[in-house]
């Protein structure tokens, strides 16, 4: 009679009721953005393929890339790339065995997010204004 209360035991905290530490989101988004970047870069490769093909092919590919949907995908690609970039740097630092402390992890996450925004804004500025 050891297991009378089977199925009625307290559960350990899991995703739905857990207050997310910022690093949990950073980790999940690292994977999501990694996949997203691959897809966007594949479209960029096709855009270059059209550039190599002919002016007519490039006109079509470029029309798609510079449509509002195209710009939206490129913007998403830029945000994803810079997120993955700054968070990847954190991972490379962790790989040396450094900066694992709770406060340090939280601080580098916030600094990384600030740099992500700056790098994305610079990219948009280069694309639009320069």
């Amino acid at each position: 009679m050891a297991d009378v209360e089977q199925g009625n035991r307290p559960l350990s905290p899991h995703l739905q009721i857990y207050k997310w530490p910022i690093n949990m989101g950073m980790s999940i988004f690292h994977r999501v953005t990694g996949v997203a970047i691959g897809v966007v870069i594949a479209f960029v490769a096709l855009w270059f393929f059209a550039l190599a093909w002919s002016p007519e092919a490039f006109a079509k590919a470029n029309w798609l890339m510079t449509s509002w949907l195209g710009w939206l995908v490129l913007f998403g690609g830029a945000v994803s790339l810079w997120f993955h970039f700054v968070n990847g740097l954190r991972h490379l630092v962790w790989d040396t065995g450094s900066s694992f402390g709770q406060k340090r992890v939280r601080r580098t996450a916030l600094i990384g997010l600030v740099f992500m925004v700056i790098l994305t804004l610079v990219t948009i500025w280069v694309a639009v204004a320069v």
Binding site: L51, T66, F85, G88, L92, V122, A127, V130
Partner: peptide, 30 residues
Amino acid sequence: RVSAIALVVLAPLFIFPLAYNMGDSYEAVH
């Protein structure tokens, strides 16, 4: 890790010129 370190250098070198050229004419990008 090796490919990641390479991309720390290559990604900015690729992305900024790409952003610069995005939306330009066929002749200019080519």
